[in-house]
């Protein structure tokens, strides 16, 4: 545990250190280059900000209105057929659309059923092996002002579903 903590804390400082050392050794105008890049960052954030506002409001409304609960209610029997634990259904539904609320739900599952229980481990694995897909697509596409996203949502969601099903299968197999 301590070693893993150390490695993950080391990763970011080490990358920056190596890059800076290379820049100094090869005698580049290191700080000028840094400023040039950082300035461009402002532009990127400005272009994704409106998307974030729109997306967050829509998803917040979906949760607060109770629509999401209804969808979960109707999907549960289908998932029971493929032996996907129904306790994890809200997590599976929210994971692709909202990062903060899926963390909240996963934490809740771990508290209620036990961190090291089967459900707790599956919930952790799902969190570790998937991303907030809708958010990723929205900010990547909007940062370059693209509206037509073709089949990217389908492909990314297929990957998410596979990740979740494999999470359940692997954790069941190991326990």
């Amino acid at each position: 545990m301590q070693i893993i903590n150390f490695i993950s804390n080391l990763a970011m400082p080490l990358i920056i250190l190596i890059i800076v050392i290379y820049g100094v050794v090869e005698k580049t105008n290191i700080f000028d280059n840094f400023l040039e890049g950082a300035k461009e960052g402002l532009e990127i954030v400005l272009s994704i900000f409106p998307t974030l506002i729109g997306l967050f409001v829509a998803i917040g409304a979906l949760r607060a209105s109770g629509v999401l609960d209804i969808i979960i209610h109707f999907l549960t029997p289908i998932l029971n057929v493929i032996h996907f634990p129904s306790e994890l259904m809200p997590l599976a539904m929210l994971r692709p659309i909202s990062g903060s609320s899926s963390i909240a739900i996963a934490t809740d599952i771990m508290k209620n059923y036990g961190v090291d229980s089967n459900l707790g481990i599956i919930a952790s694995t799902i969190m570790g092996s998937t991303e907030t897909t809708l958010y990723t697509i929205a900010i990547y596409a909007s940062s370059v002002k693209i509206k037509k996203t073709r089949f990217v949502l389908v492909a990314a969601l297929v990957a998410d579903v596979v990740g979740m099903l494999v999470s359940v299968a692997v954790c069941r197999f190991l326990s």
């Binding site: 800076v20 090869e26 950082a38």
Partner: peptide, 12 residues
């Protein structure tokens, strides 16, 4: 973005 610009200008 700043860091990658620094990296961009070197051979790493």
């Amino acid at each position: 973005n700043g860091i990658i610009q620094v990296a961009n200008k070197s051979s790493i």
